[in-house]
Amino acid sequence: MITRIRLSVALLSLCTLAACSAPVGTWGWYVIDPFTPTGWTNIKFLFRGFSSTIQLSVLAAVASIIIGLVVALPAFAQSRWLRLPNRIYVEFIRAIPLLPMLFWVFYGLPVVLRTMGINLSIDPFWGAVITLALSDSAFTAEIFRSGIQAVPRGQAEAAQTIGLSRAQAMRYVILPQAVRRILPPLANQFIYIVKMSAFASVIGMEELTRRANELVVTEYRPLEIYTLLILEYLVLVLIISAGVRWLERRMNADESR
């Protein structure tokens, strides 16, 4: 309900903005007018980017969560030497800006692999998935670490006294509780991934932003097209928000049932 109100408010303000500026003559909405054949063709062209943006974001998010968890767990090892790789990974990956990393993975990685005797060409889609997943995993790892730390110590102690190993305690007692706590920040990261997926356009992946760029080049109407592009991302993000809120409600109901 709240989501719907917020969506309408956002749309309304954008339309108002457009309406106010119309007399000045800066806007030309015909370019994406669904009631003209060209406008409708353009809209369909732009909307076809949805599926790649969604696929890219979902794959990257899933990979990021898996990598993040694998990276986070050694942070709780008793040995300092086991904890070290966690710190190094997080600090190093977190420090690389997304765009240079995208270039490095897409253009550089195949070259590096070739020198190692591995012939692997990386297409724009997988290049973007790998980059987004790696880049985000450092943050996911920190989220997992903080979530695990937030579970009271007594839980691990109780698990130990009923005979569970450290790994079992993590799997059956600590992680299930940590995941409930980190759901909101994980959702945040997912939204971040969806938005950062726009960078995939620069290595030629045909997602939402790339299609908008291409249309701008042929139609010379950047303001209208990028406005629609922003709305496209807004819709995606609002859907995610609603989904996460539903999940949170379900999990809370679960805990007190």
């Binding site: 006294t161 509780q177 805990e255």
Partner: peptide, 16 residues
Amino acid sequence: RGDVGMVFQQFNLFPH
């Protein structure tokens, strides 16, 4: 495993 049982002041049941 579990040969020594422990009961805590704060119960420490698993809430999930």
